[in-house]
Design a protein around this nucleic acid. Structure first.
Length: 279
DNA sequence: GTCCAGGATCGGG
DNA sequence: CCCGATCATGGA
């Protein structure tokens, strides 16, 4: 177990779980959040207002989770950089204080956002969990003592690799993917064949990465931007979905101007998205 | 039952 | 280049 103090309220696992950027983070109760990422189970317990316990070793925290939760980035400075005349964004950032942009698994994020098109977040979560159960590896949750609570499920499943999904493709018909199933299978073939690799994508600059992603079958502008933001941490990307479009129409004359935030527009986007959906 | 969801593709103008 | 029709399903 690792105990971390993160001051000033700029880390809030519950808000991150409800922010809609990840589909396998779950709020257990007001002080406990759990997630599956990288084939591991993690639980975070709030032990004081700005103090958190992570159900992992210090080494695992340093090697994996610190980076996953983007804990080295100064989110106060990002909030302070908001143009003073943009009162809507200021309110949204204050309301969403504690949200951070995760560095999620690349393949999982691409597939998850392919599935996400024209579906609600609860429905996406259901689909992602079904695929994991069908083709992923079983993960037994740890037995945890205070300050943690019992994991909410008895068994968990990692998000499967491309070859794992392909080897269970006959079982995916009743996973509820609908018309997106061919998209998912083609993406799996692209990765299994080596046409795409995580290293290739990771090392590409923004424009190249965007083209590589949008060239994939079933990946358009919005899904590509979500993958870039939530898996590759390209925080200047600004995904526009129906919620963001509504905000743009209502408060920004149809289009939000990203130019003041070349490296952080995606973080601002996440504040707006969370503000609009949960208040 | 109705309506909408973190959209993308395709064909036609 | 832009536009509209269409896509399959879950959750509210």
């Amino acid at each position: 177990m690792t105990v971390k103090t993160i001051r000033d309220g700029y880390f809030d696992p519950e808000k991150i779980a409800l922010s809609g950027q990840a589909f396998r983070i779950k709020v257990i109760d007001e002080d406990h959040t759990e997630l599956i990422a990288g084939g591991r189970y993690l639980q975070i317990a709030r032990t004081a207002p700005d103090t958190f316990a992570f159900s992992c070793t210090e080494k695992e925290f340093e090697n994996i989770w610190k980076d996953f939760f983007d804990l080295d980035t100064d989110y106060k400075a990002i909030e302070d950089s908001i143009l003073p005349e943009d009162s809507y964004l200021k309110d949204a950032a204050c309301y969403g204080r504690g949200i951070r942009i995760l560095r999620q698994d690349i393949f999982e994020t691409i597939i998850s956002y392919i599935i996400s098109q024209r579906r609600s977040i609860p429905s996406i979560t259901t689909c992602v969990n079904r695929i994991s159960r069908i083709a992923g590896d079983r993960i037994d949750p740890p037995s945890l003592k205070a300050p943690f609570v019992s994991p909410s499920e008895e068994e968990y499943y990692s998000f499967p690799s491309a070859s794992q999904i392909l080897s269970h493709s006959d079982e995916l018909d009743d996973a509820g993917l609908g018309y997106r199933l061919p998209y998912v299978l083609q993406a799996c073939r692209d990765f299994q064949s080596g046409k795409l690799t995580e290293d290739l994508l990771k090392n590409a600059d923004d424009d190249t990465l965007f083209k590589l992603l949008t060239d994939m079958y079933g990946v358009g502008i919005k899904v590509a931007n979500c993958a870039m933001l939530f898996a590759f941490h390209r925080t200047g990307r600004f995904p526009v979905d129906v919620w963001i479009q509504r905000i743009q129409d209502r408060f920004y004359g149809g289009k939000f101007d990203c130019t003041p935030y070349p490296e952080t527009a995606g973080i601002m986007q996440q504040f707006m998205f969370f503000y609009e959906r949960t208040r």
